[in-house]
Amino acid sequence: MADEITLEVVRYRPELRIEPVVQSYQVPLREHWAILDGLTYIKDHLDGTLSFRWSCRMGICGSCGMTVNGDPQLTCATFLTDYAPGPVRVEPLRNFPVIRDLVVDIGDFMDKLPTVKPWVIRDVDSPVEEGEYLQTPEELDEYKQFSMCINCMLCYSACPVYALEPHFLGPAAIALAQRYNLDSRDEGASEREDILSSPEGIWACTFVGECSAACPKDVDPAAAIQRYKLTAATQAIKNFLLPRGAR
């Protein structure tokens, strides 16, 4: 095994250039080194001007999503040796405006997230003194998968619909809405219906399925969206057939 590998980093420095440029760095190729270790090596030893986000380096905080050789990846959980002998191309996540180098602007998602009301909505809140809302392990399993989202944005980066239709709510936001819709403690599904069933919601999705392929936590947002389509369509038929009072 060679002892070095080339990282081709796509850099955008708003003060210097209009267009991003590729800059190559040689970093040590070592067992257990993630792409992220390569990037911190560059930052610490070769070029302090390289900007990227990272924090937990254990695949749970969702900071370090980037495009590695064309695929959206958590760079802390993607290893240099898997790309040997290289070179490895590291780009910012696709489908987001780039602020600088590998740092993208996820403000759009942060603005959309509250619109799907991702919190427990109850008709009547019980006081905590009365104890927990009971929930069996089976009821927990109904939504558990969709609660695993770390908001890393890899699904948005993989989604061509989001690229073409920036108003699209997107995979993670819809999956999180479904996470609450399917939670036995929640009674807010009807409050989320308008936004989810809007043209920017589930109906914009053409089931490319790339969001689920990209998801590092097996959340399967594509499934969340398809399931909600079926729910919404059934609901629409019911609304159409039944008089208002009988719904």
């Binding site: 955008y12 708003p14 267009e19 991003p20 696709r94 489908n95 405006p97 780039v98 602020i99 602007d105 061509p160 690229a163 073409l164």
Partner: peptide, 13 residues
């Protein structure tokens, strides 16, 4: 803050 928007090719697929 000037953001960079990557253009989408017509034949992105």
């Amino acid at each position: 803050m000037s953001l960079y928007h990557r253009p989408i090719p017509l034949f992105w697929w």
